[in-house]
Amino acid sequence: MTPRIRILATASAISAAATAGYFTARHSLRAELSTVRHAATHDPLTGICNRAGLTAAADTLIRTAHTAGRPVAVVLVDLVGFKKVNDTHGHDAGDHILATVAHRLTGIAGPAGIAARLGGDEFAVITTGPATRRDDAEPWLADWLTHIHTRLTTPVTYHARPLAVGATLGAALADPGHPATAWLHRADLAMYAARAHRRTTAVFTNTTNTPATTTADRPRDLARPTSPLAAAPTTRRAA
Rank of each mutant, 00 (worst) to 15 (best):
R6Y: 01
I7T: 13
A11D: 15
A20F: 02
G21M: 04
H27M: 10
R30E: 13
L33Y: 09
R37G: 01
H38I: 00
D43W: 09
L45C: 04
I48D: 02
N50Y: 07
A52V: 13
G53W: 09
G53F: 10
G53A: 06
A57D: 13
A57V: 06
D59S: 09
D59H: 10
D78V: 02
K84M: 11
K84C: 02
T88F: 03
A99Y: 00
A99T: 15
V101M: 02
L105A: 00
G107A: 10
G113K: 03
L118H: 05
G119L: 11
G120I: 08
D121Y: 05
A124R: 08
V125Q: 05
V125Y: 10
T127F: 08
T127K: 01
P130G: 04
P130N: 09
T132Y: 07
R134S: 12
D136Q: 15
A137I: 04
P139A: 07
D143C: 05
I148D: 03
T150F: 07
L152I: 15
T154N: 07
V156Y: 03
T157K: 02
T157H: 10
R161L: 09
A164H: 12
G166W: 12
L169C: 10
G170T: 08
A171F: 06
P179E: 08
A180V: 14
A182N: 03
H185T: 14
A187S: 14
L189R: 13
A190V: 07
M191Y: 01
A194W: 03
A194Y: 03
R195Q: 14
H197K: 09
R199C: 05
T201H: 12
A202C: 14
F204K: 00
T205K: 03
N206S: 14
N209K: 07
N209M: 10
T210C: 11
P211V: 06
A212C: 05
A216P: 00
R220H: 09
L222T: 13
A223L: 14
A223N: 12
R224K: 04
A230K: 04
A230R: 00
A231N: 08
A231C: 03
T234C: 05
R236K: 05
R236W: 12
A239Y: 10
